[in-house]
Computed example of a mutant assay.
Amino acid sequence: MSLTRRIALLSLMALAACGAPRSGPPPAPDGVIFAPNFADVHPVEFRGRAPQNYPVQGIDAARFQTSINWNEARRNGVNFAFLKATEGGDLLDPAFGGHWRDAGRAGVERGAYHFYYFCTSPEDQARWFIRNVPRTPGMLPPVLDMEWNPFSPTCAHIRPPAREVRAQMRRWIKIVEAHYGMRPIIYTTPKFFEENDLSALRGYDFWLRSTAISVSEAYPGQRWRFWQYSATGIIPGIVGKVDLNVFNGSRQQWVTWLAAHKL
């Protein structure tokens, strides 16, 4: 066999061993914290520390985010994602399965959240969440999303007194915490927080929404772990607008928090 033919054959064998070329970049290495490359359609000048100055940032996503390249999004600063899973006692977000799978494959730290309804018992809602959210090694704590729901034709008018609201929250949390072995995070809005005196709930990590004023102005004196500061974020890899969030702490505090809270 001639030298030329031998080189050609070796080249073909090398290509075959390598396989087909990858489509898009491979997943980023585990544990890497990426700086945010985020934009905002409607940016806000917050008093005090600006969200952009928090080193660890992420998103929350639901069926409205119809196309996410999670590898690209992660490399552009999506270090964590809270993904909508369930509502009430019988609604499953149709995008949850795909988001959960693909975010995990890209190495994004991910957790699932449940949107609470006041026309279904907390026990039924907890069981529905558990039925649809797999107990996955490495997952973030579950999230209980508490806000008034003006859109439900059956639940919008049901607004229990504050003490009953907190009692129902504790019942949901007790079941979910027992199943996953992690204490859930509480997400809420300024109006719901104030009207139901959620500051009375001690020992929980809070994820707080405040998109018009700083989180410290919206929730004076309240400790928090995550801040949802925008609903109009733009991130490479994500089609359309998305909610933007920050973790309250340094990079090292993020690593420490993950070590203590991941499944």
Results as ranks from 00 to 15, higher is better:
T4P: 00
P51F: 06
A103N: 10
A14W: 00
L144E: 13
G98A: 14
F80E: 06
Y117V: 02
V133R: 07
Q252D: 15
E45S: 12
N196R: 13
P55S: 05
M139S: 15
M146V: 07
V246R: 09
F129M: 08
V255L: 14
Q125P: 13
R101T: 15
I238D: 04
D124F: 13
M139L: 06
P137G: 12
R131T: 07
A39P: 00
A28N: 05
I158P: 01
V176L: 05
W172T: 02
R105D: 14
R47P: 08
A178F: 11
T86H: 03
G181K: 05
D205I: 00
N76E: 11
R127G: 06
M182L: 07
N76D: 10
T66V: 04
F192W: 12
F80A: 07
Q222F: 10
G58Y: 02
M139E: 12
P220L: 03
E194K: 14
R5M: 04
A178P: 13
L10F: 04
S250G: 06
W257R: 12
G77N: 09
N196H: 15
P220Y: 03
Q168E: 07
W257T: 08
T189E: 00
I68V: 15
P190T: 15
L258A: 05
G107F: 00
L244D: 11
A200Y: 08
S2I: 00
Y116M: 11
S210H: 09
E194L: 14
W254K: 10
L144P: 09
P190C: 15
A61P: 04
K241E: 15
A218H: 10
D30N: 00
H261M: 07
P141Q: 13
P43N: 02
L144V: 15
